[in-house]
């Protein structure tokens, strides 16, 4: 399953040993700058940097990275067409194409808007993928704890993370058992099999939940889970470098705010 591979790479990549706080600050600040940009230049710069870092520094296999980064590209092309439809008639007409007998005209404003959204999506997804593929969830929990996320939420999130993988294994086992007994052979049996799978998964989940409470209780659970170790703060030098880079990008945003492709 897909979630397994992203999680595996997060534990196993070239940038694993970089301080997680640094990676979070870097990815989130660039993500915000990307969304705040009014022209396509800065998001594209950010996308290139993030794609370079993920492929060449973190050494994420292309087989896994390309489909993930391909989604915003495919969706971006749809977005440009969509924006051309909803903003038709604003500005100069650029060109028109016929699709399935419909004639779609592309006007200046709509195409520019579509390209802007496209570039923001590309940059944004590249930032999120960088964070997701280089930083394991377990490290992110420490960062979230220092950001004062309520402990009830964090505890639930941590246990949820653990049990997602337990339940995926369970689901795959049930699915294989069903397949060997002629489940999923046509549409009707597929629904029946899925219903049985989901119900059994729910019941096992419930039982596991009750057992987990007993397990926690027998180890002195008083309503809170304790995270003992801490992550070190990154070197101030690197934070200043990221800050300088952010300011540099914001200046570029300001300088290119009137830039339009068409």
């Amino acid at each position: 399953m897909l979630q397994n591979t992203i999680d595996n790479i997060a534990h196993n990549n070239g940038l694993y040993n970089v301080n997680p706080k640094l990676k979070v600050i870097f990815a989130i600040s660039l993500l915000l700058i990307c969304v705040l940009s009014n022209s396509i230049i800065v998001p594209l710069i950010i996308a290139i940097i993030m794609i370079y870092l993920t492929i060449f520094k973190a050494k994420v296999p292309l087989k896994i990275y390309l489909p993930l980064i391909g989604t915003p590209i495919g969706f971006g092309i749809i977005t440009i067409i969509l924006m051309a439809i909803i903003y038709s008639g604003v500005g100069d007409k650029l060109f028109s194409i016929g699709i399935f007998g419909y004639n779609i005209s592309f006007y200046e404003y709509g195409v520019n808007m579509g390209l802007l959204v496209f570039s923001r999506m590309l940059g944004g997804v590249a930032c999120t993928l960088f964070l997701a593929l280089t930083t394991p969830m377990t490290k992110l929990f420490y960062v979230l704890k220092e950001l004062r996320v309520p402990s009830s939420i964090l505890d639930i999130a941590m246990m949820m993370y653990r049990y997602i993988f337990v339940l995926i294994d369970e689901a795959i086992r049930i699915e294989n058992a069903q397949k060997t007994r002629l489940g999923y052979k046509d549409l009707k049996t597929t629904y029946k099999s899925l219903g049985i799978l989901a119900a059994n998964l729910f019941i096992t989940s419930w039982d596991r939940g009750e057992r987990l409470f007993i397990i926690l209780n027998s180890r002195g659970y008083n309503g809170n889970l304790k995270l003992l170790s801490k992550i070190e703060s990154p070197n101030i030098k690197y934070i200043l470098l990221i800050l300088a880079f952010d300011i540099f990008l914001i200046i570029i945003i300001y300088l290119t705010k009137d830039f339009k492709v068409f």
Binding site: D155, M160, Y163, A198, L201, R208, G209, L212, F213
Partner: peptide, 22 residues
């Protein structure tokens, strides 16, 4: 206090349910 682990696993179940292909 027992609702915390139960809700956590209910959330994990929601995650799996939303990744089932229908």
């Amino acid at each position: 206090p027992e609702v915390k682990p139960l809700l956590a696993i209910a959330g994990a179940f929601m995650f799996i349910l939303s990744s089932l292909k229908m």
